[in-house]
Amino acid sequence: MATDTWFITGVNSGFGRELAEQLLSRGGRVAGTVRREGSVDDLRATYGDRFWVAHLDITDLPRVREVVDAAFRDLGRIDVVVINAGYGLFGAAEELSDEQVVHQISTNLLGSVQTARAALPHLRAQGGGRLIQISSVAGLAAHAGASLYHASKWGCEGFMEALAQEVAPFNIGVTLVEPGGARTAFARGSLQLSEPLSAYDGTPAAFVRQFKTPAPPTLGGDPAKIAARIIDSAAQQPAPMRMVLGSDSYQAVTTALRNRLAQVEPQQATAAETDADDT
C-alpha cells in the first residue's frame, strides 16, 4: 500500500513527519494535518499535488470532521487513515492543573475518537480501508508520573479494540501501534510537564522530570524503522490488532500483562462466589 493515499494527523514532526516523508518518497499521496502553519512548506515544495495539507487543532472536534471530509472530497479514495497527533503530559496526578488534564484528554483521546468517527463513513462508502492509531507502550504498561498520559492512551486502546469489531464487516481493519521510546523530537516539542510539588521529590513520579533536562535520556527506537514497519503493516491481511515496536516496548508490555494475569488468576474461585445461585 506504499503507493496508495494516506491521511495522517500531525505530519509536522515525529512519526507523522517520518511516515509522510517515506510515503511521498515511495511515490504515494499523503493528506496531512498540522497545528502550526508553514511547518511543512518544504514537503509541499518538493512533492506538489501529491501532498495535501490542512491546518487542524485536533481538539476542535467539528473542525476535525470538516478536514477529514475535505480530504476525501479532494483526493477521492483514501486507503489508510493514521491517527497520530498527540503529546505527552507528565507529572504526578496531583501536580497537574485542571486545564492540563482537560487538554490532554481532549487531544489524545477525544481527537483520536473524532478522527476515526469522521473517517468511517468514507471508508464504508468506498468498501474498506485501514485505521492506524499511534498509541504507545504507555497504552498497555503504566508508570508513576504519567497517569494522565496513560489515561489518554488506555482510552484509545479500548476504543480502537472495540471499534475493530464494529467495522470488520465493512472490510475496515484497525491497528494499534505500540512504540517504545524513540529518537524523535518528542522530549523537546511534544512533552509537557506539570509544575512540581516538593512532596513528590524523590518519589517514583519524579522520574519524568529528567525528560526536560538539557540532556534527556537516550532512547533506543529508530523513527525511520518504526515508520517503515507501520507502512508495511497496511498490506497485512488481516490487519494486526497491535504492533509492538521496540525491545523496550516488548519488555514493558509483556511484563505488565504477566503481572496483570498474576493479580487476576488467583481470584477464579472467589470471583465465582458472587455468581447468582441459579447460574
Results as ranks from 00 to 15, higher is better:
S135F: 02
S135V: 15
S135W: 02
A138V: 01
G139W: 01
L140C: 09
L140P: 01
L140R: 15
L140S: 10
L140N: 12
A141S: 14
A141F: 03
A141C: 06
A141I: 01
A142C: 08
G145A: 09
A146G: 06
Y149S: 07
S152Q: 09
G155Q: 14
G155S: 08
C156F: 09
C156K: 15
E157Y: 02
E157Q: 11
M160W: 09
M160H: 04
E161A: 04
E161F: 05
L163R: 02
Q165K: 15
Q165S: 11
V167F: 05
V167T: 05
N171A: 10
N171Q: 12
I172N: 01
G173Y: 02
V174C: 12
V174Q: 02
T175D: 05
T175M: 04
E178S: 02
G181F: 06
R183I: 02
T184C: 07
A185G: 04
A185L: 08
F186V: 07
F186Q: 11
A187F: 09
A187M: 10
R188D: 10
G189A: 12
S190A: 14
Q192V: 13
Q192L: 12
L193Y: 08
S194W: 04
A199L: 13
Y200L: 10
D201P: 00
T203Q: 15
F207I: 13
F207E: 14
F207A: 13
V208P: 01
V208W: 12
Q210D: 09
Q210A: 10
T213N: 15
A215N: 15
P216G: 10
P216I: 08
P217A: 07
L219G: 00
G221I: 09
D222P: 01
P223I: 03
P223C: 05
A224P: 00
A224W: 08
K225R: 12
A227Y: 03
A228P: 00
R229P: 00
I230T: 05
I231W: 01
I231Y: 06
I231A: 03
Q236S: 04
Q236W: 08
Q236V: 06
Q237S: 11
A239H: 07
P240M: 11
R242I: 04
L245C: 00
G246D: 09
D248F: 04
S249F: 05
Y250P: 00
Y250H: 14
Y250C: 13
A252G: 07
